[in-house]
Amino acid sequence: MSTVFLAVTTDGLKNALQLAASTGSPIWCGSDAISEADFEQLAGRSVTRFIYPLAGEPAEVINDAIATMEEHHPGATIWIEAAKGEP
């Protein structure tokens, strides 16, 4: 079974890129996780950038993103970056 990553923050995207480097697993991220210019530098890698932000958004937005990912990767395990709580 394949794995797909959902990165919500810039740090999460960096971690997902490292984890996926050896497997080629697809990565999806919000528009706020990477600039358009930096995203273009990832050409050839399996990274998809939503046109809307994910960080700090309500669960409904994240759920919609997950539904889109499920449409493109049916049956895949989706790993979602968890938000860090307040100390």
Rank of each mutant, 00 (worst) to 15 (best):
I62V: 15
L19I: 13
G56K: 02
E57Q: 15
F5M: 02
F50A: 06
Q18W: 11
Q18I: 12
P87M: 03
E40N: 13
P87A: 08
G75M: 06
G24L: 07
Y52H: 07
I66P: 04
G44M: 09
T77Y: 08
T23L: 07
F39Q: 05
V61P: 08
T3F: 00
G75P: 04
E86A: 14
I51V: 12
P74R: 00
G56S: 01
T48P: 02
L42E: 09
G85P: 00
V61C: 09
L13Q: 09
A21L: 06
K14I: 12
A82E: 10
V47I: 15
A67G: 04
C29D: 08
Y52W: 08
A83T: 09
P74Q: 03
G30C: 05
I80R: 10
E86K: 11
F39H: 11
A83I: 04
H72K: 13
A16G: 06
Q18D: 12
P58W: 09
W79D: 08
E81F: 01
I27Y: 04
E71L: 11
P58A: 02
Y52C: 03
S31W: 01
D64F: 02
P58G: 03
S22E: 15
R45Q: 15
A37V: 14
M1W: 07
E81Y: 03
F39C: 02
I78V: 11
A76K: 00
A59P: 04
D32V: 10
A43C: 11
A21I: 03
W28P: 03
I34F: 10
S2Q: 12
S31C: 05
S2F: 01
G75H: 08
G30W: 11
F5G: 02
N15K: 12
K84D: 11
A20K: 00
A7I: 05
M69R: 07
W28F: 06
Q18L: 13
T77Q: 07
V4K: 14
E86V: 15
